Simulated assay, not measured.
Amino acid sequence: MENMVLLDNIQFTRKGINRLYELGMKYKWYGPEAPIPLRWIYYVLRPTPFGQKREQMISDTMNQFHREFLNLQRRSLIPPAYWDTMILNRFEEYVINQQVFTVEQCIKLYESEKQERLKPEGWEQFYLKRVKTSGPIT
């Protein structure tokens, strides 16, 4: 039962960071960091209804990003330092393979694997160990 709660939270966190990514991309293309040709077009269209709508959309996107980030931070068991899809995939593997039962154990195992990969020739041993235990990497 505890594993199901942890798996659900990992999936919830993954959905949350995907949503934050979508909002960030929207801001990137329409906000002040848009590519230069787009910024020029936005500058020219600023006094028009389209420009005003764009400004409102940027403001709404920033507010929504902030709200969703705080909500994810409040509801996720996983610390923001580990909000990465690849890390969450590893956490999910640990839970499914019943190697861990808590977030703290996930973090500890992940960090130890990370240190193992950083050692000379550690990556090859890590890869061989993973192939033997879980089959080919997909």
Rank of each mutant, 00 (worst) to 15 (best):
A34F: 03
K132G: 12
F91Y: 00
Y127F: 11
R46N: 15
G135V: 09
L70T: 14
L38A: 05
E113Y: 12
G16H: 05
W29G: 00
M1R: 08
E92F: 02
H66P: 03
I107S: 05
Q73L: 15
T133Q: 12
T48V: 07
N97R: 13
K108S: 08
P35Q: 03
P47S: 04
N3Q: 11
K114R: 15
K132E: 15
Y21D: 09
S59E: 15
V95F: 03
E22K: 01
Y27M: 14
Y110S: 06
K129H: 12
D60A: 08
P120A: 02
W40M: 10
L38R: 04
T138E: 14
G31R: 05
N9M: 06
Y42V: 00
P49L: 13
D8R: 02
M62S: 09
H66D: 15
E33L: 10
F91G: 01
L45G: 11
Q56C: 00
P37L: 01
R19A: 07
I41T: 06
G16D: 06
T85F: 05
P80L: 03
R39Y: 01
S112V: 14
L20G: 03
P35C: 05
A34R: 02
P120Q: 03
M1T: 14
M4L: 13
R54E: 12
Q98E: 07
S134E: 10
F69A: 10
M4H: 09
T133G: 02
